[in-house]
Amino acid sequence: MKTAVITFPASNCNRDAAMALEKVTGRPAQMIWHRETEIPSDIDFVVLPGGFSYGDYLRCGAIASRSPIVKDLVAKAEKGLPIAGFCNGFQVLTESGLLPGALLRNKQLNFVCRPQKLTIENGNTRYTSQYAGLKEVIFPIAHHDGNYYADDATLNQLEKEGRVVFRYAGNPNGSARDIAGIVNEGGNVFGMMPHPERAIDPVHGGTDGLGLFKSIIESI
């Protein structure tokens, strides 16, 4: 099992993501620099970490989504490579077209950081199968632009296809239909604004994030 974390300029949760992957797989994650052009073929799972890639300038995730490495990421996603984006990583995924919708500025306009209760909407995805029927988890959130937006047709389709994986219990940012995390049609690409990688150790105040990493690793 080999995992990787992509680092963009001013990614700042890359180390946190790598620690989570190492904890679950028992092996250090490979760090991939954004200017590289190819994700090594032996990588089984890629995380796009949180942070402020390119300072959130222009639009969150927009510049990073044009990085050389993202071209190969898109190609490999289409072939079924599991890819997860947390926070800024989710924004990069929507900007690169791997997931539908967009992340707008939080409704109350302020940055918000708090432990956030989420409901698991679909426990049968590659990212949630190990939660074994658990209905609620708490992951920290920390973002300024987490207000998920998509048109009604897209939202309806996401819901109909069971691709809304997590919803906020108590919407912190104005997201449409309380959506916190979604998967693509193939079920291999997942994005969410909350930070499961910051909920993997009792010191964090909870370990609810482990289930997500265990689920995707188990599915490979």
Binding site: R15, D16, F111, C113, R198, D201, V203, H204
Partner: peptide
């Protein structure tokens, strides 16, 4: 005030303003 600050990035925060 403190909800506008990321208190957990780096994943080593044991206790904070929270």
């Amino acid at each position: 005030i403190w909800e506008q600050y990321d208190r957990h990035v780096m994943a080593d925060t044991v206790d904070s303003s929270q």
